[in-house]
Design a protein around this nucleic acid. Structure first.
Lengths: 150, 150
DNA sequence: TATTGTTATACTCTATAACTATA
DNA sequence: TATAGTTATAGAGTATAACAATA
């Protein structure tokens, strides 16, 4: 036992190490499809809806509306997303996937499946169940709800 | 079962959500002491040694030497770290904590302890043991060794 | 006035590579 | 030449706040 605790003494350290590796590898995979992880999460969130207001997306994803704007700009340039005027309120611009963007979502979802299998496939079924349950317990007890993007 | 898997269907999603929350809260805590998480990990790595070459630190932390240089610049400005000439090789500059930097490490380590307790204290002893073991299994099977900083 | 969304600014971290000095 | 380290550049993420248009 040392007076000054070691980095590796903290669960947060291991959590960050593994999480970074998983996310980094996933980022590499989706980069081959021309998008970032943040862009993927926005696209996946949009996939289940016709259109969503930036403010709603920001709340759902735990980001500021400014950050959503910047993300949307990039997806717009790539032709994956479109801004739509709102007939009821001329301040409002909804965001929606284009046909191209929509067609990309299943491809990206398959990459997410593959990445998960690659990493967590080394665990036993019981370990995977334990990990899942513990992570969801932690998320629930700390009131975490927003989509993690980085 | 849906054709396109949901974000929340992936263990990587929950891992990232929890890891981001833990790291973000820790970042807030150490920011009150004027350092970032990356700066803390470099300081902690240096704490156990008199001095280390940037190249060695880079390897230990899984960063490039360029990234180490930039980190060192910031810690130098804050008076927490010093560059030392190497008598044997005039190209080499070792990095070492100043007395001020060294005195800060126990304080930051206590914040890391507190953050870990705050997050993982809600788990049972068995759950903490399971999480620890599973994370270390994942790190080992994927050959992860470098210090995670972001 | 308040709200919607965009834009501006600034900072951290990351990655690649050019560059300087020394070996 | 090769190596040690710094510096430059660019991209992605984050946060705050100023801003224009509309309600």
């Amino acid at each position: 036992m040392t007076a000054v605790s070691n980095l590796a003494a903290h669960a947060g350290y291991w959590l960050r190490m593994v999480s970074n590796a998983v996310s980094h590898d996933f980022a590499r995979k989706v980069a081959a499809e021309g998008v970032t992880v943040a862009e993927w999460t926005l696209m996946r969130a949009l996939y289940d809806h016709q259109a969503m207001a930036p403010t709603v997306l920001a709340r759902k994803m735990g980001m500021t509306k400014g950050a959503i704007s910047k993300l949307a700009d990039r997806l717009l340039e790539k032709g994956l997303l479109a801004r739509q005027d709102n007939p009821g309120d001329r301040r409002a611009h909804s965001l929606a996937l284009t046909a191209l963007g929509r067609s990309k979502v299943p491809v990206l979802a398959a990459l997410a499946d593959a990445n998960d299998a690659e990493y967590f496939g080394v665990l036993t079924l019981k370990e995977r169940g334990d990990l899942d349950r513990i992570l969801k317990t932690l998320a629930e007890k700390r009131g975490l709800t927003s989509v993690p993007v980085d």
